[in-house]
Write a protein that binds this DNA or RNA. Structure first.
Length: 483
RNA sequence: GCCCGCAUCGUCUAGCGGUCAGGACACCACCCUUUCAAGGUGGUAACCGGGGUUCGACUCCCCGUGCGGGUACCA
């Protein structure tokens, strides 16, 4: 099924500027899926060439996030690989050498213009409704520049953007064309000796033998620069797939600045990694069939970049809720017992196993389990906000239901809950009440709320003694009421 | 300012010249039912606007509008 495509080497190359959010992880997921689909390799590379924006600890955070989601990388930090190192800050000599090679072949040049001059230049261009581009002043005075550099003046290496047009076939968007006169002579090597993204990304992708560059569509306008670097170095460029942005419900692009949530937080909120993967895959991608629920393995099987929709997508958390519930219901009991360990702290495996039949089909997130199971661990206090007797149930019926339940449990026990339930149902009907209403009395009595896990299973879990204690307490509450 | 990208129900999407425009989430109703869920059935809801091309446009082209992005010695 996947044999027709040659193996792809893809990479995810985040900069360590903070935690990963849905947008960035979705890009990583697409790259991972494309590699897995073709039985190729997925590489993780840290793009830490900007010392000013570096945030300590974020590399560890990125690694933890990817591991939690099971997006395992074949090469990269902590796992190594033959093309390392996989942190750009450790590769500065390589970039410098390539920058100098580009200068030597006249595809790039040194520039000593100050930031002040550059700013003034752009301001002027803007005032004249011109595109803002470097005016190539230093290109015309290379001997002076050489002297200035020799004298210790700060200098950068700029790409000499060739004339003509740049075209490429984007895997997701098809033919893309740029007029090179619109493209700036990009700085490739900063005066601090570090490369810019534009140099490092090309050098690394080539040296690491990346076949398909999968990245956010904000990179489309600078792709011509990258293609020019490939050409200048005499390299064959990879394929490009520019994936659309993920938007928040207010239609804005997800970003750290706007408070996009750290993906790891979703784990604490009770979401399963496989549900998150499923939800992210559906943001911008569809299988073309009517299947919507996928395991990660199924996604690897059917995912192709060609089926990624080019429009930006709004992330709807309700969809994630739905998928999370569906994945929880599909889990086998043992897996759920393990997944619940974090959210039902202090419980034994056996206790959690006993809880599964009550919880599995009625929780959306794992944290829901905590709330649903709470009355099974701690006897609920009467809550003034919970009407008792419940609405639509008169006092006489409520008393009658409780008496019947107490009698059934005392004499019949909890071994045959079927019998208990049918007796209670008959009792409700005899009292002229709908079972729907009458049973709420018992739910409030046993669980402290008019709804919750199934009554019979709850009582079995609590045991005969505790069940009777709660039923009697409720009966007493009713006795005090006059009427 | 200049450049680029995108455009189907509220949201995610299918569609690749002729369809009653399909599915999912959410919402509503009903069924099932010991509560709540889950599950089942049904329903409300969309082709941004204007020009072309064509026997025929959601689909192809142009313009506009809207949204997003780029325009750094940030990625």
């Amino acid at each position: 099924m996947t044999g027709s495509q040659s193996p792809m080497r893809t990479r995810f190359a985040p900069s360590p500027t903070g935690a990963l959010h849905f947008g960035s992880v979705r890009t990583a997921l697409f790259a991972w899926l494309a590699a897995r689909h073709t039985h190729g390799q997925f590489i993780l590379r840290i793009e830490d060439t900007d010392q000013e924006r570096y945030i300590p600890g974020s590399e560890a955070l990125i690694i933890e996030t990817l591991r939690w989601l099971r997006l395992e990388w074949d090469e990269g930090p902590e796992v190594g690989g033959q093309f390392g190192p996989y942190q750009q800050s450790l590769r500065t000599d390589t970039y410098r050498a390539h920058a100098e090679s580009l200068v030597a072949s006249a595809h790039a040049y040194w520039c000593t213009c100050t930031p002040e001059r550059l700013g003034a230049m752009r301001e002027e261009q803007r005032a004249r409704s011109q595109p803002t581009r470097y005016d190539r002043r230093c290109l015309r005075r290379q001997e002076e520049v050489a002297a200035e550099r020799a004298a210790g003046m700060a200098a950068v290496v700029r790409l000499r953007m060739p004339d003509g047009r740049t075209e490429w076939e984007d895997v997701i968007r098809g033919a893309l064309v740029f007029d090179n006169t619109e493209i700036d002579d990009q700085v490739l090597l900063k005066s601090d000796g570090f490369p810019t993204y534009h140099l490092a990304v090309v050098v690394d992708d080539h040296l690491m033998e990346i076949t398909d560059v999968i990245r956010a569509d904000e990179w489309i306008p600078s792709t011509p620069k990258h293609l020019a670097v490939y050409a200048g170095l005499g390299w064959r460029p990879p394929r490009f797939a520019h994936v659309p942005a993920v938007l928040s419900p207010d239609q804005h692009k997800l970003s750290k600045r706007r408070g996009a949530r750290n993906v790891l937080e979703y784990g604490e909120l009770g979401y399963l990694p496989e549900a998150i993967v499923n939800a992210m895959a559906l943001l911008g991608w569809s299988s073309g069939t009517e299947q919507e629920v996928f395991t990660p393995a199924e996604l690897c099987e059917v995912f192709t970049l060609e089926r990624v929709h080019p429009a930006p997508a709004v992330f709807d958390p309700r969809r994630l809720d739905d998928l999370n519930g569906l994945h929880i219901r599909r889990m086998d009991a043992d897996a759920l017992v393990d997944a619940l360990e974090f959210h039902l702290p202090g419980t034994s495996k056996d206790v959690r196993r006993a809880l599964i039949p009550m919880l599995q089909e009625r929780i959306t997130t794992l944290v829901d389990a905590e709330h649903l199971a709470a009355p099974l661990f701690n006897r609920p206090e009467p809550d003034p906000n919970v009407p008792f007797p419940p609405r639509n149930v008169d006092l006489a019926t409520a008393r009658r239901m409780l008496d019947a339940c107490i009698d059934a449990v005392e004499h019949g026990g909890l071994d045959g809950t079927e019998a208990v339930l049918s007796r209670l149902k008959a009792e409700a009907e005899a009292a002229g009440a709908k079972p729907r209403d009458a049973f709420r009395v018992l739910y409030v009595a046993v669980l402290g709320a008019p709804s919750g896990v199934p009554l019979d299973q709850a009582m079995v879990f609590l045991g005969k003694e505790e069940s009777l204690t709660r039923l009697h307490a409720a009966r007493t509450r009713l006795s005090v009421i006059t009427g």
